[in-house]
């Protein structure tokens, strides 16, 4: 049986004359998927399309087999923490979460119990009975996260979920995402903290100007980019000698000795050829202490694909 997916099939969305996303086709498997792109690139549009609060002008999409045209089914399995900061007037944090649960059909007692549990997960129980309007930005963020988590959905859609969280809560939240994803659920999130996304995402979707630039695991995306050389840092004692042995190889486009002289940066168009070259160097008796990929992070991909603007 195939895993349930989130499928975008040639989806386009325009806001009047302004492009939202253009002809997006995606198959998102369970796990943590990060949408990465600059402001206005279409990340929020993709998320809003997923939950049906905006409609595609063209194409079709389903979330685990359910169309956004059926919110009564879809929102039972989806929790969405939007970037919209406002909550209905006069609601406390507890009401904000429990009222949403009551719309799911939970009794008031059960909704309250679940709301406390969700608020506890985001460390917001102390402020649960204060008005959401009086919360700080970070607290509102956590309240939205609690609301998204409270009904234990199969798909978590989180727009910039780590903004405004303190380091401890951030670490706990990321751990919760991991736990969710490990249960075969979807966690779709967008973030500007690229290093974090890099670390905990199962796959990334790079988006710019409403178009998908790349998708997949960070490493595999990187490998598909043949036009950009891969970068490796070699840690070794005799950097100058290693550099002289590599510079003549056809697959090597550039070699730079690091400022501290304790290694060098090598750019290669063919990873396998570099591996063979390193074996040759080792056989020649030159010790290589470590080989570290220098551009298998989202920042580097981003720069290659989109052209430098993070």
């Amino acid at each position: 049986m195939t895993a349930p997916e989130i499928i975008f099939d040639d989806v386009s969305k325009f806001y009047g004359d302004v492009l939202g996303v253009n002809r997006v086709t995606l198959h998102i498997p369970p796990g943590i998927t990060s949408l990465v792109g600059p402001n206005g690139s279409g990340k929020t549009t993709l998320m809003n399309l997923m939950v049906g609060i905006i409609r595609a002008d063209r194409g079709a999409l389903t979330v685990r087999g359910i169309s956004p045209d059926h919110p009564e089914q879809l929102m039972r399995i989806v929790g969405y923490a939007t970037q919209y900061d406002a909550a209905p007037r006069g609601m406390t944090g507890l009401e904000f979460v429990s009222m949403a649960l009551m719309l799911h059909g939970f009794t008031q007692a059960e909704a309250t119990r679940r709301a406390w549990a969700a608020l506890d997960r985001v460390s917001l129980t102390d402020a649960a009975k204060r008005k959401v309007g009086a919360y700080s930005k970070g607290m509102r963020q956590r309240a939205r996260l609690a609301q998204a988590l409270a009904h234990d959905p199969d798909v978590l859609v989180l727009d910039e979920p780590l903004n405004g969280l303190d380091p401890l809560v951030r670490a706990e939240t990321i751990a919760a995402f991991r736990e969710y994803a490990d249960q075969g659920r979807h966690v779709i999130l967008s973030s500007h903290v690229l290093q974090e996304v890099d670390v905990f995402s199962d796959q990334v979707i790079l988006i710019a100007n409403g178009a998908i630039m790349a998708e997949g695991q960070i490493r595999s995306v990187r490998e598909e980019m043949h036009e950009h050389p891969s970068q490796f840092i070699l840690h070794c004692r005799d950097a100058a000698r290693v550099a002289s042995m590599l510079i003549g190889d056809a697959h090597v486009s550039e070699v730079k000795i690091l400022d501290d002289g304790a290694g060098l940066l090598v750019m290669t168009r063919r990873r396998d050829d570099l591996a063979a070259a390193l074996s040759r160097i080792a056989i020649a008796g030159i010790e290589i202490d470590g080989v570290i990929p220098a551009d298998e992070n989202v920042d580097a991909l981003y720069e290659y694909l989109i052209g430098g603007g993070r």
Binding site: P71, A86, P88, R89, A100
Partner: peptide
């Protein structure tokens, strides 16, 4: 008030 999404995200028919 920018709060309509609260309702649209409920598992309820429009």
């Amino acid at each position: 008030d920018k709060t309509l999404h609260f309702w649209l995200l409920a598992p309820a028919r429009r």
